[in-house]
Design a protein around this nucleic acid. Structure first.
Lengths: 378, 378
DNA sequence: GTATGAGCTGATATCGATATCAGCTCGAGA
DNA sequence: TCTCGAGCTGATATCGATATCAGCTCATAC
């Protein structure tokens, strides 16, 4: 083996916090606040020889200020590189120009695409995005919601992943905080909703397998804790029922390995000839299991998944999947939230329900040979 | 085709902002601030019949308060569901418990994993994460950095994607704001750095192809605008040089399609027998092009990429790739930043340089048959 | 010539939490 | 008994921006 130079590399040293930083909570709180030299509105006012209100008016409304004065103040602002202190504005104005985004995870491309869109639309509209990833941990979600209140968040976008936070959310709504739920909803909360046509997408996916001549189609996924999953299950059931077929489910709790169950099922006397997976995590898990056992798709078992992803077309067997418009979801939700912030006063009127269509992307895992697209619109 | 019920679906209505919301910037600024009923420290104090300072002491230090008083105040806080107003704290204390994270994009799994780790570590340490995705747009990055100052961000984590922001960053550093650069660095800025062994990883990847008997190995990617890419290029060059081979580059500017270039190259008289792609976007682009032309990997051309991803093993030809510890990168950077916040006063001492090792994950695209792992440590 | 009001500007109070300092109580030591 | 200090508590000022209102100037109308 050829050798080569090494660069500085010190992972052990830093895998934990620096020793001098392991201070008690108490000591940490007593930490002196760093005094950063800041240019305030008073400095700008002094520089122009005017009062602070004049400067404030220039920064904001610009009404009732002479053109000459605007010029002078703007020049001083530029010269001093003044920037208004958002904390002070927030304190006075009661609401920050910041929206909170709570997602279960960012490792899932569905959520990260969604988050990306949210951040972009918000930025365009002058809002910052405070990001929270709760990793489906119930307590974390509750904690995060309470943090939001602390920080005078203007509104909340949430992919709810815990029934525990119902109480919190309801209370936030009562106090006038606009909330938009994305991808899933929690019953009993008067908030905006942006979802996809889960039932229709699942119906279409299942029907497609039926059209391929499959009769024993297994519905596979992680339980029905979210209503979006329930809707997909219902779409599957309806498609099976319509075709006079018996629905079959393999639904497990989060954390239970699903691969072995499917493999066992495929070795049973009357194995399913096709699988319908309820989300992309399930699809990938199942694909991994099938690959390990070298089960051929779609010859031995066909597969259609809910939720498409970028690399689906480059897989060993390109995956047929129901594409959800993740970025669109985020965009619509953000717009809805900001709309409701603008009309002010809780903006109840603006919080509505949007349901976006899905699209069945035909690739090879369902048994289709040609690559084609069927738009979901009927 | 079987028909099924449709749910409410109104995308056109909402593709833009609601008409009533297209207010001028002026009008929007004059929007009345919603008056939200808030429980303040004064309410808690009144409820206990004590002064606000006593309550403040209970919330924070708990020194110099009798046990009985602590009990009474805590009871009142719980009963009233009081939460301190972060804006007020920030205004008084000059620094918020919020860190800013700037990444080029969240659609790239490398960055989204990194962001996820950052958010988690920060949350554990009582910090919120303000997210910014600049989409490699120079002006946006500059704008975002100035927003940070406005919002009294405690510190900045950045995957820098623009030389334009050098000036901004330098000024922020001067004013005592801790900054940690992730994955890439910009010269001339005195900030923390958390990177991977790019040179070594690329050297190893290239050497592996050489060990497979390849002589014409093409280095493919999107220009050298970041130093991490430059280091990878240098690692490739060094490996080629060490083996007495001639390095060959296909480096294009962002936005230029790279697929056609590679295909043209493969049709030339002396085509490369192997490709080394400089990041995962490039790998995927090249894989797409090769698939379209049905070029077999590794028989017609072998491929090793820098940057591994979750689905690499499920691809038509499982990809051999240099794995970067994305989450580790985020974790270390966040720890470094928070360390430096804790020691306070700019925390210069704590801002150091960390370089993490990479790992070459052997799959089939390089020509290796068995699936095995070679740890990068030498 | 004076009244009126429109247009512009600044002094002051305010948002909520906390640093500072002064005041209070109580027990120990002189 | 008096003093002193330790321990606890509250009044006040402060952070930076803005709402409110008062004051000022000037032109027009009476």
């Amino acid at each position: 083996m050829i050798s080569f130079p090494r660069s500085t590399y010190l992972p052990e040293d830093r895998s934990e916090f620096h020793p001098c930083c392991r201070v008690s909570e108490l000591a940490w709180r007593r930490m002196p606040n760093r005094a950063r030299p800041v240019v305030t509105i008073a400095d700008v006012a002094r520089a122009c020889g005017v009062g602070t209100m004049t400067v404030s008016r220039v920064i904001n409304g610009k009404k009732h200020v002479s053109a000459e004065m605007v010029r002078r103040v703007e020049e001083a602002i530029a010269r001093l590189n003044y920037q208004p202190n958002e904390a002070a504005r927030t304190l006075k104005g009661r609401t920050s120009r910041t929206i909170g985004l709570i997602v279960p995870s960012l490792s899932d491309p569905f959520f990260s695409q969604c988050a990306h869109a949210v951040q972009q639309v918000a930025a365009e509209q002058g809002y910052m995005t405070m990001l929270f990833a709760c990793e489906s941990n119930r307590n974390v979600e509750v904690e995060e919601l309470s943090q939001m209140r602390s920080r005078n968040i203007a509104g909340i976008l949430i992919v709810p992943s815990s029934e525990e936070s119902v109480e919190q959310l309801r209370e936030l709504r009562r106090s006038g905080m606009p909330v938009v739920m994305i991808d899933r909803t929690i019953a009993g909360i008067d908030a905006g909703e942006v979802m996809v046509e889960n039932l229709e997408g699942a119906f279409r996916a299942t029907s497609h397998l039926i059209d391929h001549g499959h009769r024993r189609i297994q519905c596979v996924g992680y339980d029905r804790e979210y209503n979006s999953i329930s809707q997909r299950i219902e779409g599957y059931r309806k498609a099976m029922q319509t075709a006079g077929l018996q629905p079959q489910y393999t639904l497990v709790k989060r954390g239970v390995p699903i691969g072995p169950k499917i493999l066992a099922l495929l070795r049973s006397p009357k194995p399913p000839t096709a699988l319908f997976t309820l989300n992309n995590v399930t699809s990938v898990t199942v694909l991994n299991a099938l690959k390990r056992e070298e089960i051929r798709i779609p010859q031995q078992v066909a597969l259609v998944g809910f939720d498409d992803f970028e690399l689906a077309s480059l897989l060993a067997v390109p995956l047929t999947a129901v594409r959800q418009p993740a970025a669109e979801l985020g965009r619509h939700a953000t717009r809805m939230l900001i709309d409701s912030l603008r009309v002010g006063n809780g903006g109840e009127r603006m919080l509505s329900r949007i349901v976006l269509p899905t699209e069945l992307i035909l690739r090879q895992s369902c048994g289709c040979e040609p690559i084609a697209r069927i738009t979901h619109a009927l």
